[in-house]
């Protein structure tokens, strides 16, 4: 199931449309890398949304030995678009795998622009576009590509692959995922980017596993109240 992990680069960055599921995908991907025996750190680069942050999974990440770098304001009672200086350690020290959770849309990706030169210089990264065809503002392949270009300009980086994270939350069925495949394939065709993997929850994994290649089984984040 985790064949796509063989192609993992040292740095994996997840960007995409607001609410497409980047944080969940990033946390799950970091956990898989760790399970595969790699030393992993995860950084929260979100300066757009003060809620639904990587930090919500802090306990689980810590339990699994994954260091989390996140703003001390994430999930607090203030909305400060601040980034910790520690993030440089992921970019400049090359001995660990690094997973980056980028904020939504071009506004969120602006923060990535600060680090893009160093990441490109090292040249051992994947910048993955997280797409969900059930999000209304990215519901057609053309809209998804439009958002992708806006992000690339803001981040000063090109995407290298696609993550099909199409879902309807708790109402996701195998059909929900199947119906998203042509959409993801069209985004792939329009951009020339490969679909690196498709996410499914444990509940429906068995029903889709032989029908869609490169599945990543994810579990949904528990919000820490």
């Amino acid at each position: 199931m985790d064949g796509f992990l063989n192609k993992a680069k040292r740095v994996t960055l997840f960007a995409g449309h607001y609410g497409s599921g980047k944080t969940n995908v990033a946390v799950n991907y970091a956990l898989l890398l760790k399970k595969a025996g790699h030393d992993v750190m995860i950084a929260d680069l979100d300066i757009v949304n003060p809620y639904f942050r990587t930090k919500d999974s802090a306990d689980e990440l810590e339990k699994n030995g994954i260091k989390l770098i996140s703003s001390e304001y994430a999930g607090s009672n203030v909305d400060l678009p601040a980034l910790p200086s520690e993030i440089y350690s992921l970019v400049d020290i090359h001995d660990k795998y690094a997973v980056f959770d980028i904020g939504g849309d071009d506004r969120g990706a602006t923060a990535l622009g600060r680090y893009s030169d160093s990441i490109k210089a090292e040249d051992n990264y994947e910048l993955l576009l997280v797409i969900n065809r059930y999000r209304p503002l990215s519901k057609t392949p053309e809209l998804a590509v439009e958002i992708m270009h806006e992000i690339e300009v803001a981040a000063n980086m090109r995407f290298t692959g696609i993550v099909n994270d199409s879902n309807l939350g708790e109402e996701t069925t195998p059909e929900t995922v199947f119906e998203s495949v042509p959409y993801a394939e069209e985004v792939s065709r329009l951009t020339g980017l490969p679909i690196r993997f498709t996410t499914v929850t444990k509940k429906i994994y068995a029903e889709v596993k032989d029908k869609i290649p490169n599945l990543m089984e994810i579990h949904l984040q528990d919000k820490i109240v």
């Binding site: 609410g19 969900n132 999000r135 879902n167 309807l168 939350g169 109402e171």
Partner: peptide, 13 residues
């Protein structure tokens, strides 16, 4: 068809 939305987005749409 159903879409996945934030409450704020649902108000706007």
């Amino acid at each position: 068809e159903k879409v996945l939305m934030k409450g704020n987005e649902a108000i706007a749409e």
